[in-house]
Design a binder for these strands. Structure first.
Length: 886
RNA sequence: GGGCGAUUGGCUCAGUUGGUUAGAGCGCACGGUUCACAUCCGUGAGGUCACUGGUUCGAAUCCAGUAUCGCCCACCA
């Protein structure tokens, strides 16, 4: 055992300490669950969103990792069987977007490389980029089980994807069909509704004349129907004009035809109730292949769909003379020509919403194609019931409504992506076009419909939407579909934690797929954190240049300080601004802890054979820590992380540092103390520090661990012999010592009162002044006597004269222990007299109010007795104070 | 067009099942080289809890409505 304190550096150097501490945890294998679950232990398993493989860590990841790490460290200390599986998501569209840019610098492209070489290049890219996120999570202190690290392109994940899809197929929940889907002409793939982000924009709405057909089939130059459109270029794909059946203006035209400009196509004029008479001209051009509304209408009226755009949104050969032009060029050309022909009747600005590709920002194009769909209604119903019936709880609770609303209005999920990087859909086509779905990696033996041999089958080239594999995460990471020990031990998981922005993308999908695949809710609690915003309250984004790099912050102030800043004063689901002031607060708190530890370690007195009597300070801080332990435990159990942070901050700084350590100094340094008493005080200080370190460890793991090492090094008793804080036990709340707390409160009130007097009287802070106290009674006198050493030092008053004295100056500190005043001449100060008068007035006002309240029969009769009692106590206190001031 | 959330001292935010004197940090004012810490210590000022009405002995908290801001969802050309 070391008996001399380890020297703690004068300044805490987070940048140097943190990586070393992480190494120590790794070396001790502290993150991995035991080989077998400890008997009787509760289970606590985190489900986390795997970050995109290509993305550098941003502040949102930092918050995610912090919140999860707090939970897992807390439960680990509780002795629970904990697991937190780390990993990265292959992010197919995102990764391709990044890689496309990289290879473009070499003059290459997807097309120039081809699928096979492109994928080789991608795997090579993965080797470089995959470890980055993990390394960054280490810097934040994330105590994940690295031995179970998962990549969603690993074989295990791939198998889970195939098996899940095959089961959905077998259950009749997968179909292939033609539909109008969201198409990104730049990424060259389908995207889901969720990835199609709508933005308000000011566009133009044009009114165009379609001439009516004459009996001889030619357009009538003098008769037309005017249609309004925001997308003139799509007229090339028009196959009808629609009006409302009850619209008198057009009733006569229904059944006749208009002639499409440029192409001369005959357009039937149809009546449909979905047409809004008041909008535009009341007549709508119908482009089934390029507008979702029109597509639906065309189905009702059995109209053909003509696709006029190619995959890059250029006019295809169907567009006649406009063939080859980009959609916007074509728009201008068409407008010019219509204008020339006199058929462009009007144009005016128009407010509208336009869908953009979430990834690249390109305007999304509805595109008619054959796609794989998952029929999600039945899945959604189950997922909805789980939340409605409380088997899964969402925090904060109001997101349950958001979740329900989305689940109730869900559309079938187009899961296919025309990309290369990702899990290829395990469907195989025979030359006759029959699809066979398999859960094997290789081709099925034969076509399920016509029996053609496997050698003639060709695999689907589409891959899965990344969220399909992410949706399997909670169990695919544990070895599903096999019945692995991990599945049995860790599934279903406990808390799924993420930002509310991916509630639909991911949480909803996990719920649906989890219930379908495993017949169990994949987690019992969904904890959604808010977004971190820039100081102005605006969204952080790299393009705006207002984003902060969490790693820069870690480098500058340390991971602990950043973690504290992000969690303190935050509430789940609420956005927060990360300001300099907040970050400084975290850094300052780290510094405070460090210095408190330096003091404790450096002030150890001579060892004493037997511990002496415990002082008021010791009894008081024990009780405060017991209270904090009880509250912190309750708050962590309720996932109230902001409350937990506030609790430990307050007890550490406000109670332990500001009051206890100052009182402990008095006890350690007073001349009349025995060695035994000093030893008792110090050992309580060390114990208190140990308790604070334990309470704070989930939030600020590094600095607490570093201090713990020094503390437990030469005082193993504090740590129960556990050399690593990460493995130490979470404290058990001891009973409160109400007597000590109330004795302390009385004394502290007096000390504050005297300090206040000094300030008001303008007594220089360093000067010792004599104090006179007139105690309220014998008990107060006794308390005063035993607390006089504290009072002297903390209020810097000496000597203290205790006497009953009716002759009081203007300046008096009123307290439960008695009236006190400084033996200095300050009475001449009129300012002081004013202050006293206003204090008396305030007291009288409050006494009046309380007297009135207590005279109210209804209050006394209906309020709980404890409340009435408390008000009576308050009134008595106030009356006593008033007497002291008189 | 629907839905959700927010509105608390100068700023950023907490506020547990309604309990009567609404908290914190920062900022501000004043004073401090008290041997852990100036990334600190002490003292203080500052709020009719957006507004209106209701329920209640009692409302920042529950209910209804209004206003402002923000977010999400949505197939009106």
């Amino acid at each position: 055992m070391t008996t001399t304190p380890r020297e703690l550096a004068q300044r805490y150097d987070a940048a140097a300490v943190e990586p070393a501490i992480y190494e120590r945890w790794m070396a001790a294998d502290a993150f991995r669950p035991a080989a077998e679950a400890p008997p009787g232990a509760d289970r606590f398993v985190i489900t986390q969103p795997p970050p995109n493989v290509t993305g550098a860590l941003h502040i949102g990841h930092a918050l995610t990792a912090t919140v999860e790490d707090i939970m897992i460290r807390y439960h680990r200390m509780r002795g629970d069987d904990t697991l937190w599986v780390p990993g990265v998501d292959h992010a197919s569209i995102g990764a391709q977007f990044v890689l496309d840019k990289i290879i473009a610098t070499d003059g290459e492209s997807r097309a120039s490389l081809g699928r096979e070489r492109y994928l080789e290049r991608m795997w090579q890219f993965m080797k470089d980029t995959r470890p980055i996120i993990g390394e960054q999570h280490r810097r934040l202190g994330a105590s994940v089980d690295w031995s179970r690290e998962v990549f969603t392109m690993d074989a295990g994940s791939a198998r889970a994807v195939r098996v899940a899809f095959k089961r959905l197929w077998d259950a009749g929940l997968v179909y292939r069909g033609e539909a109008l889907v969201n198409w990104c002409p730049r990424c060259l793939t389908t995207i889901s509704d969720l990835e199609n982000v709508h933005r308000d924009e000011t566009g133009t709405i044009w009114t165009i004349r379609y001439h009516l057909e004459r009996d001889d089939g030619t357009p009538d130059p003098d008769a037309w129907i005017s249609v309004a459109t925001t997308r003139p270029e799509t007229l090339l794909g028009d196959t009808a004009v629609a009006v409302h059946p009850d619209d008198d203006r057009y009733r006569a035209l229904v059944g006749r035809h208009a002639i499409l400009p440029f192409l001369g196509r005959r357009l039937p004029i149809v009546a449909d109730e979905h047409v809004e008479r008041a909008f535009g001209t009341g007549a709508v051009k119908i482009t089934p292949a390029h507008d979702p509304d029109d597509y639906e209408l065309a189905k009702r009226h059995d109209l053909p769909a003509v696709t006029i755009l190619d995959e890059q949104a250029r006019i295809n050969p169907e567009g006649g003379d406009f063939f080859g032009r980009d959609r916007y060029e074509a728009r201008e050309a068409i407008l010019d020509q219509l204008r020339e022909m006199g058929d462009l009747e009007a144009e005016r600005p128009h407010q509208m919403v336009i869908g953009h590709c979430e990834r690249c920002g390109t305007v999304v194009e509805p595109r008619l194609s054959v796609q794989w769909f998952i029929r999600v209604k039945p899945l959604a119903e189950r997922a909805l019931a789980s939340v409605r019936e409380g088997r899964t709880t969402i925090l904060p609770a109001h997101f349950e409504k958001v979740y329900a609303h989305w689940m109730e209005n869900i559309h079938d999920w187009a899961v296919g992506r025309q990309l290369w990087w990702g899990h290829r859909i395990p469907a195989w086509f025979c030359p006759d076009g029959h699809a066979t779905v398999t859960d094997a990696e290789t081709a099925p033996d034969a076509c399920a419909e016509c029996g053609r041999p496997g050698s003639e089958l060709r695999q689907e080239t589409d891959i899965f939407d990344t969220w399909f594999s992410s949706g399997l995460w909670p169990f695919s990471t544990l070895g599903w579909p096999d019945s692995t020990p991990d599945m049995a031990r860790f599934y279903p998981t406990s808390v799924m934690e993420t930002g509310y922005d991916i509630l639909f993308f991911w949480v909803a999908r996990m719920m649906m797929l989890g219930l379908f695949c495993t017949d169990a809710e994949p987690f019992h609690t969904v904890y959604l954190h808010g977004m971190i915003r820039a100081p102005g309250g605006v969204k952080m984004s790299k393009t705006k240049g207002n984003s902060v790099d969490p790693l820069d912050l870690v480098e500058e102030i340390g991971a602990d300080a950043l973690r504290f800043a992000m969690v303190n004063g935050s509430a789940p689901g609420s956005d927060q601004r990360l300001t300099k002031a907040k970050l400084d607060g975290g850094r300052n708190f780290t510094n405070k802890l460090w210095n408190a530890a330096r003091f404790v370690l450096g002030s150890r007195p001579e060892p004493a054979p037997a511990p002496g009597e415990e002082s008021l300070a010791v009894r008081w801080i024990r009780s405060r820590l017991a209270d904090a332990t009880e509250r912190a435990t309750r708050q962590l159990d309720a996932l109230d992380l902001g409350g937990y942070a506030a609790t430990v901050y307050d007890v550490a700084w406000g109670d332990y540092c500001d009051w206890f350590l100052e009182m402990a100094k008095v006890d350690l340094r007073r001349d009349d103390a025995t060695d035994a008493e000093r030893a008792a005080t110090w050992s309580a200080a060390a114990d208190g520090l140990g308790a604070i370190l334990r309470l704070l460890h989930p939030l600020m793991p590094f600095v607490t661990e570093e201090i713990w090492q020094a503390l437990s090094d030469f005082e193993p008793a504090v740590g129960d012999g556990e050399s690593l804080l990460i493995r130490a036990a979470w404290p058990v709340a001891a009973p409160r010592d109400i007597d000590a707390e109330s004795a302390f409160d009385d004394l502290a009130a007096l000390i504050r009162g005297v300090r206040n007097l000094r300030t008001e009287a303008g007594t220089p802070a360093g000067v010792w002044v004599p104090l006179i106290v007139d105690p309220t009674g014998p008990e107060a006198a006794a308390a005063l006597d035993s607390g006089s050493a504290y009072l002297q030092t903390l209020a810097r008053v000496r000597p203290i004269e205790v006497r009953n004295d009716a002759d009081r100056p203007q300046l008096v500190a009123a307290s439960p222990l008695g009236a006190a005043w400084l033996a200095v001449d300050a009475a001449a100060d009129t300012d002081v007299a004013d202050k006293r008068r206003s204090r008396v007035a305030e007291l009288e006002l409050n006494i009046e109010r309380l007297t009135g309240l207590l005279a109210n029969q209804a209050f006394v009769a209906r309020a709980p007795a404890s409340v009435v009692e408390r008000e009576r106590g308050r009134l008595a206190d106030l009356e006593q104070q008033l007497r002291q001031l008189a």
